[in-house]
């Protein structure tokens, strides 16, 4: 498995800590949701960054009170066709203003990278090495986007409205 962050393959600085394992003091860690919620104050008091893996069947609103203390939220794709985490990602970014690392975990396909970027993910745990190597290419697969998300990409409406419809129609093909 490879971790992609900032568009490149990087070393994972976070250690995964299980429910009952001791939490190392000075290392960035990622803990399961239940443990984080149970020991939220203790995690808040840590000096090192804390991340949480949030299950895809739990409302992210529950996490809102803690977001300013979280360095990372991991969202889960148990199989690549289960797209609940796309909604969670957008809510975390666009509604709850989460600015930390938003990491896609589980089954992540190359063909979904761009959707994930648009939903607000900026880190990806990729199972296939070839997919990780192809990240940059996959992220550039499309250059035009119809709908706005929180990613700031220019959308169809933004690029069309403002230019005179008449002019554009003359240049465009009538099908």
């Amino acid at each position: 498995m490879q971790l992609i962050k900032g568009g490149r393959i990087v070393e994972d600085g976070f250690a995964r800590v299980a429910d009952d394992a001791p939490v190392p003091d000075r290392l960035p860690v990622i803990v399961p949701a239940a443990r984080f919620l149970a020991e939220a104050d203790a995690f808040a008091a840590r000096e090192a960054p804390t991340g949480v893996v949030w299950p895809n069947d739990r409302r992210v609103a529950e996490l809102a009170p803690y977001l300013d203390r979280l360095a990372l939220v991991g969202l889960v794709f148990p199989v690549f066709r289960d797209g609940r985490a796309f909604s969670q990602a957008r809510l975390l970014r666009e509604r709850h203003g989460f600015r930390g690392e938003l990491r896609a975990t589980g089954q992540v396909l190359r063909d979904q990278f761009l959707f994930m970027l648009r939903a607000g993910f900026d880190a990806f745990e990729v199972t296939k090495d070839a997919d990780a190597a192809a990240f940059a290419q996959a992220a550039r697969r499309y250059s035009v986007f119809y709908q706005p998300t929180g990613d700031g990409r220019v959308t169809a409406r933004a690029s069309r409205v403002g230019r005179p419809a008449r002019d554009s129609l003359e240049r465009d093909s009538l099908l």
Binding site: G83, S87, F115, R118, Y142, Q147
Partner: peptide, 10 residues
Amino acid sequence: HVTLHPEFTF
């Protein structure tokens, strides 16, 4: 709006 919508394709 729904064509290649990043949130609603899966």
